[in-house]
Write a protein that binds this DNA or RNA. Structure first.
Length: 274
DNA sequence: CCGCCAGCCTGAAGGC
DNA sequence: TGCCTTCAGGCTGGCG
């Protein structure tokens, strides 16, 4: 049987970071007109006439600051994208500026756009994995008394913000930790490795412009290149690039999990060399 | 508080 | 050929 790749991918931290880089040039621009094609996005028309002064990422969210207390909070869900090209179907909203139009496109409508007056609109979000604050000590502290399985923990946006189902599989493979391990069984060394691999993989994915399996494109329509570096995600039955044994696919919770059962042991290891 | 799970949504792909 | 089912998963809200 031929290999069938998984159906889709969601924008995670590296994709959102890449998108923000592409949107940055809109800082300083004034919204001349807002069009809404999906009733649930009602509310964003308040942005008409406002000037964007800062665009940045927090977890998987994109935040457009219009002034200190007026922001557009965007989440791309599974298939959401911002595009300067108008050829897409499933356009849900558009923002007209002086010289260009920015489209919000979202096939499955898991994405959201909302206007907020909060200074800190996403207070519950967890650690930024690429920040200095994310280190072995702070992760250990976050783990606290949690008994979550490590995969679920890393994907919990209230603990760490920005990791989704593609990168979590890659991080655990590179850390040689089984996705079903309980976080309270992780050794200090393993927590340390997790931090290092998380930063490593996310940084490299950003350098490659994210991962495109089917849907993801940046605002200029460019695809990512990190899919060529995936070690486990979407590789069920293919040989592990380290040990050669077939990559396994299981359901953990409602989510697909890929791992190598030889490289990623369930037992605790104390002397990890990476 | 914690862990777990259904449901939202749409299009692709598989089964019969 | 075509209908029907299943799958994909970020996030929210509800349950025990």
């Amino acid at each position: 049987m031929g290999y069938v790749p998984p159906a889709g991918e969601m924008p995670e931290l590296p994709e959102v970071e890449t998108i923000v880089k592409g949107l940055k040039r809109m800082e300083g621009e004034k919204v001349k007109r807002v069009e809404i094609f999906d009733g649930r996005l009602k509310g964003i028309e308040r942005l008409k006439g406002k000037v964007i002064y800062k665009i940045y990422r927090r977890g998987k969210y994109i935040i457009f600051n219009f002034n200190p207390s007026l922001s557009l909070i965007a989440h791309l869900g599974m298939t959401g994208k911002f595009s300067f090209k108008g050829e897409d179907s499933h356009i849900r909203a558009s923002f007209k500026f002086d010289n260009k139009i920015l489209y919000f496109v979202d096939t499955r409508r898991f994405g959201s756009l909302r206007v907020s007056r909060e200074e800190n609109p996403l207070p519950y979000l967890g650690l930024e994995p690429l920040s200095r604050e994310f280190d072995a000590r702070s992760l250990f502290e976050k783990i606290g008394k949690s008994r979550k399985r490590v995969k679920d923990f890393l994907m919990d946006q209230h603990k760490i913000a920005g990791i989704g189902n593609i990168y979590v599989n890659e991080i655990l493979f590179r850390s040689r930790i089984h996705p079903e391990r309980r976080v309270d069984t992780l050794s200090k060394e393993e927590v340390n490795i997790l931090v290092r691999m998380t930063k490593d993989i996310l940084k490299k994915a950003i350098r490659k412009g994210g991962t495109t399996i089917r849907d993801y494109k940046d605002p200029e329509g460019r695809e990512g290149r990190f899919q060529d570096f995936l070690m486990v995600y979407g590789r069920e039955g293919e040989p592990c690039k380290v040990c050669g044994s077939p990559i396994r696919r299981i359901k953990q919770g409602n989510r697909t999990t890929y791992f190598c059962e030889v490289c990623q042991k369930l037992e605790r290891r104390n002397n990890v060399t990476g």
